[in-house]
Amino acid sequence: MAQKNIVEIKNLSFGYGNFMLHKDISMVFPRGKVTAIMGGSGCGKTTILRLIGGQIKPKAGQVTVDGKIVHKQDRQGIYELRRKMGMLFQHGALFTDLSVFDNVAFPMREHTKLPESMIRDLVLMKLNAVGLRGAHKLMPTELSGGMARRVALARAIALDPDIIMYDEPFAGLDPISMAVICDLIRTLNDALGATSIIVTHDVEEAFSFADYIYFVADGSVAAEGTPKELSKSKLPFVHQFVHGEKDGPVPFHHNAPSYKKDIYEWV
């Protein structure tokens, strides 16, 4: 029987050298739901996606995907798990030497033995889902940022994955492209019966479509809940983040000695 939570993170700690980025983090990602991970830049949101994808190993704790502990799998095991995942990278990460069509066809050609005629139909179907069927002959350099993101999304869903991970899907997009991507995330999730994990710091968009949200700060989960619960939250960090206040629990100034000391040091 399929597990209720397709991805589970239990007591995870991760860091580089002596610096700990995550300390004892736990999260669950229920099947069929859209879950957002939010937090300031550099808090390790993308690293969580990389840990789920098995690109890096935790220092403690574990990440389970479909009941299997990711970092205990061998290379073959990790590759089998990754075939259940699709990932949209921050800047699309399209293969620049391949056309839009070939980019979307790439995972199909690598992992299946489907005839080329069927691959063509599937690719056009995926591109149609993101509204770019008419752009299938273009090269990645001929696409706008929003279009590239949509092509990358079509590629991410090429093999109908169970889990779709989005790394900052709205970064650097104009409002129209943002709304399109926003709508696609929800629509594709529901149409494919997939589970979506979105890393973002765009409050308005995440609150509009996510079923559940985790706030990450200082290496741990600072708050969690549905968008409705979080928008009413009185927690200082959540309040500062949601309302975009420049000072608060997350200080405006980076850690530094006293201003006076810094000034007079050079005198």
Binding site: Q55, F89, P107
Partner: peptide, 20 residues
């Protein structure tokens, strides 16, 4: 390719960049 995350994307598609 590494800087634009193309190699990571390939890895995440369960395709070895060393082979491809």
């Amino acid at each position: 390719m590494k800087a634009t995350e193309q190699l990571s994307a390939m890895e995440m598609m369960a395709i070895s960049p060393i082979a491809r």
